[in-house]
Simulated scan of single mutants.
Amino acid sequence: MSESTETIVVGAKAGPRTFGPLTTQMFVRYSGASGDLNPMHYDDRQARAAGYPSVFSQGMHQAALLAGFATDWLGARGVRRFQVRFREQVWPGDVLSCSGEVTGVRPSDNGARLVTVALTCARQTGGVAISGSADFVVPSGS
């Protein structure tokens, strides 16, 4: 966990993390790793035939980037809930910026705290690709 537990208070923010520019090759690799073999993510000709300007990233690809950002911030072992809402498509060349803010802190079991965070994965345009939230159990004052 990279965040000191003393600084986890409502309103605390994680430093943003950027990913990209994203490439079609990244989408292809994610397709193979995830088993999402929809050609809209790797076959530009088929994506254009379907009315899209090009291939586009899988929503779960951005969700994975956002989850990695959140667990780097507050620790993978403490994850209790993670949810996202897909909002905008992500295209080759996009640069994504993940950010997070603590929205709640309350006591949990064994002297730990349950920390709720709001999460955002935004495109360089300012549009939000994914918004989400998560709960983490973190130790009190270590």
Rank of each mutant, 00 (worst) to 15 (best):
S2E: 11
S2H: 09
S4K: 14
S4Y: 02
S4V: 11
T5N: 05
I8W: 02
V9F: 00
V10D: 00
G11M: 12
A12C: 08
K13L: 06
A14V: 13
G15R: 10
P16S: 13
R17Y: 01
G20W: 07
F27N: 07
R29D: 15
G32M: 02
A33H: 02
A33S: 14
S34L: 09
S34D: 05
G35T: 11
D36Q: 05
L37Q: 09
M40A: 07
M40C: 00
Y42R: 04
D44R: 09
D44Y: 03
A49S: 10
A50M: 12
Y52A: 10
Y52C: 01
P53H: 07
S54R: 11
F56K: 12
Q58C: 01
G59L: 01
H61S: 07
Q62A: 13
L65K: 02
L65H: 04
L66M: 12
L66Q: 03
L66V: 09
G68Y: 01
A70E: 00
W73Q: 06
L74T: 06
G75R: 04
A76H: 00
V84D: 00
R87V: 04
V90T: 13
P92V: 03
G93I: 10
D94C: 10
C98Y: 04
G100E: 00
G100W: 03
V102R: 06
G104S: 15
R106G: 06
P107K: 08
D109I: 03
R113P: 10
R113N: 11
L114Q: 12
V117A: 09
V117S: 05
A118I: 06
A118N: 13
A118R: 12
T120Y: 05
C121Y: 01
A122D: 11
Q124C: 09
Q124M: 10
Q124Y: 03
T125M: 04
T125D: 15
G127Y: 05
G127A: 15
A129D: 10
A129K: 05
S131T: 15
G132L: 07
G132D: 01
A134W: 01
D135Q: 14
F136C: 03
V137S: 06
V137Y: 01
S140N: 11
S140P: 07
S140H: 10
G141K: 05
S142M: 05
